[in-house]
Design a binder for these strands. Sequence first.
DNA 1: GTCACTTCCTTCGATTTCGAAGATAAGCCG
DNA 2: CGGCTTATCTTCGAAATCGAAGGAAGTGAC
Lengths: 381, 381
Amino acid sequence: MNQRLPVQGAQGDLLRLVATGKAESRAELARLSGLAASSVSLRVEELIDAGLLAEEGSGTSRGGRRPRRLRLSPGAGVLAVADLGAHHVRLGLLDLSGAPLVIEERGCEIADGPQATLDRIADAFDELLAAHVPPSVPLRGVGTGIPGPVDPAGQRVVTPSRMPGWNGFPVADHLAARYDLPVLVENDANLMAAGEARWWPGSENLMVVKAGTGIGCGVIVNGRLHRGRGAAGDISHVRVRSDSSIVCACGHPDCLEAYASGAALMAALQESGIEVTRTADIVTLVDDAVPEATSLVRTAGRRIGEVLTVLVNFFNPDVVAVGGSLSAAEPLITSIRAAVWERCLPLATRDLEIAPARAGRDAALLGAGTLLLEAALKVTS
Amino acid sequence: MNQRLPVQGAQGDLLRLVATGKAESRAELARLSGLAASSVSLRVEELIDAGLLAEEGSGTSRGGRRPRRLRLSPGAGVLAVADLGAHHVRLGLLDLSGAPLVIEERGCEIADGPQATLDRIADAFDELLAAHVPPSVPLRGVGTGIPGPVDPAGQRVVTPSRMPGWNGFPVADHLAARYDLPVLVENDANLMAAGEARWWPGSENLMVVKAGTGIGCGVIVNGRLHRGRGAAGDISHVRVRSDSSIVCACGHPDCLEAYASGAALMAALQESGIEVTRTADIVTLVDDAVPEATSLVRTAGRRIGEVLTVLVNFFNPDVVAVGGSLSAAEPLITSIRAAVWERCLPLATRDLEIAPARAGRDAALLGAGTLLLEAALKVTS
DNA sequence: GTCACTTCCTTCGATTTCGAAGATAAGCCG
DNA sequence: CGGCTTATCTTCGAAATCGAAGGAAGTGAC
């Protein structure tokens, strides 16, 4: 059962404020939306009648009458989201507030091409919906993350590496043909950034670094995802200072990725005769205090930090959040911090927080939820 | 005669659209503001009655009835703007559309401290107003650019270099005490970026590099100035790759500024026994094809370009505009282009324009006008 | 307990905004 | 020159929004 959200005009803003947890009562809605309290009451009434919002008990008093708590109605709908990796896909269902109902991981070869991969995802969505959601609760949107650049206009994949058959494929259109619903297609690091942003309330400008097999980065400016012309956030092909010289897959010498990515670290470890097959193994080695691994991670952190130095001076964010599978290795973030603190302008680091990502491994799925909700609540007047 | 603009609600949006030249008729206003055509008509009527807008003939037809052209009324008001340099100040008066009425340059030692400097500016404003503006036309706002970081919250100067006595000085408050009007205080490179942005309609994301005695940069994101925590846009203290090692004034080795700023080039030229006293002299030398100068400028361009490489990949702008006194030296921009084209991701440079700044030497003053107008039209309901 | 005060929410008349329809003023074209 | 098309602008009733006033439900002081 698919169905667009039947909201119009100001209702969308109010519903989003409740869904994102920013407001819990009519009074808060009035303050945050800028609407008059009376208008808020009217719209909320409509949303309750439409079955999208529900009243649930009362909150704590702030010195006066207690607010009547508003929640999204459980029957308001669900979102289906996926995050596509090279050899697997994480996917799940969220309620409209972005909270996960069910999330699982499946094998899935991205090299099989878009048609097969997307169909597999859609089939998985259908299974999950049948198993976990009563038929009366409608699906309100579908979104997926892609490990490559996405053109923001046409929502196509553009010049991806390691994704044979995907170049120029209209992913959004293909999904929209199956679901007549808001559809979101976005780069995975961007989704992760969008997901992370909710965990840093009060911070409007974030950089979210994804340190995994590759190195990605998503940028939040003024609380919104910055896409640029579709390629924003790339930091992996920045030239780093180095004595030796490695040519990256992109054709240029000494890219950050060639030195500090999980893939590069694995290659270096294997050269030292240490067996590793996944980036998680590196974290284990570091936890076991294997000197080669610790030293490599530390160097990688310093290199990433040196690149961030430039970007922190330029972009001057509130927060640099470091996520991805490698970020579990503690020396990584420590050495990133050291490099940034040492080299950046005091003014830029004065109130800067460099911290591990807070949203966890499902950050990208949660981010897809956030962006999808926004898309679903776009002015449909 | 000082007076806040008597606008409320939607009037501000409409007035801004006309002032910034984005709209010239009621129909365009309706399209751009999103308001209904009827509401636009009503508000425009009010603005005309208030003496802020005026009808002026009719525009060219687009196939149907000709639009009735709307202009800012000449008597709507003026803005007083200044751009403070180390040894001089450029200042002038603009009409509300941001067009200059009069601009001049005066000697002024920033080292005399904020009190004396700001009073000198204010006196200059008064003189210009008396000489060029009829008393019936009110002053609507005052703004100034500062060659140092400005805290966006308190509009104070923070940790400036080469500005003794200015640290922490509440510039905006000081000006506001003399003029009870919207007051703007902003970093000079940021003002320049704001001014430049108007010359790139259709481009939402810009980097504006100011290559002069120092190296500055302003960032426009989604059409609006990005301030970060107040220090955004710094690129001068990024570490560059280099064989030798120079320690910058900031204490770190190999800052871009120490290699590629006008000051650094002048020092290098003087060491070769070539007489230069201002950055403009370097441009003259390059125009005269003096090999040392050309080579130095080319190297500086390449170094700036290498830094921009990182930022272009990350920020993925539509335009990189290069201004400042050094930008008149043609090899500078050529070598910046070469470095960026060579090293950036194709996806990031696909539609990227790297071009000389268009706004000219008064860019900062025009930018101050743009930002001031916005401040003056903030919801005063 | 009671009284003053705060906060939350609703009621209701005034105001603003909208949108459809019509009036106005062109250009295009035979 | 007289329809036909297109675009601009205004009129007017309907709908949304606002703001002031007041009722509801709490806290804290005495």
